[in-house]
């Protein structure tokens, strides 16, 4: 077991994890943050995306021990039912979630983009979510949902 210290959604968590434990397993199974999903566990679908130090990464490919001392943000950390992040509201308004399974990763990826570039073009949004698979929507409503919360459109 390896000791790790993570800041998850603003709270510091000290854990002992086996070295082979991935961050995906840690957030879902050790911390109970099941908003982070998984569709392949091999880095091929994007559903497990979380933010590490503000940057979207695939938690299924990240060893928890390698994330020690990092700031991790999961979908639970950016808004709630009562105080949703503008993206969380926008996804509903634009029908950008159908089954909802890719949605947490999609929203986090979009949030990281908007934090860096508050006025991305549609092309930039598409490039940013090109590692996130969605099987339901055909992506177009997702592009609209993200475009609606750019600085320009707010």
């Amino acid at each position: 077991m390896e000791p790790v210290t993570l800041t998850v959604n603003g709270a510091t968590r000290r854990l002992f994890v086996p070295p082979q434990r991935t961050l995906l397993e840690t957030v879902r199974e050790d911390l109970g943050l099941t908003g982070t999903k998984h569709g392949c566990e091999l880095g091929e679908c994007g559903a497990c995306t979380v933010l590490i130090d503000g940057v979207p990464i695939l938690s299924c490919l990240t060893l928890t021990v390698n994330a020690t001392d990092c700031e991790i943000v999961t979908i639970e950390g950016i808004g709630s039912m009562t105080e949703p992040h503008p993206l969380q509201r926008s996804f509903g308004e634009h029908g950008a979630a159908q089954c909802g399974y890719c949605t947490p990763a999609m929203i986090l990826t979009a949030k990281a983009l908007l934090d860096r570039d508050p006025n991305p073009s549609e092309e930039t949004i598409a490039e940013a979510i090109a590692g996130n698979m969605c099987r339901c929507t055909g992506y177009l409503s997702i592009l609209s949902a993200v475009a609606a919360v750019t600085e320009e459109n707010q």
Binding site: G35, E76, G79, M81, P84, G92, A97
Partner: peptide, 21 residues
């Protein structure tokens, strides 16, 4: 109108099968 479960989906609260334990 948005889906009735839109916010639950977007906040990661929907419990899919593997989210149950």
């Amino acid at each position: 109108a948005p889906r009735v479960d839109a916010l639950a989906q977007a906040t990661g609260r929907v419990k899919y099968l593997d989210d149950l334990s």
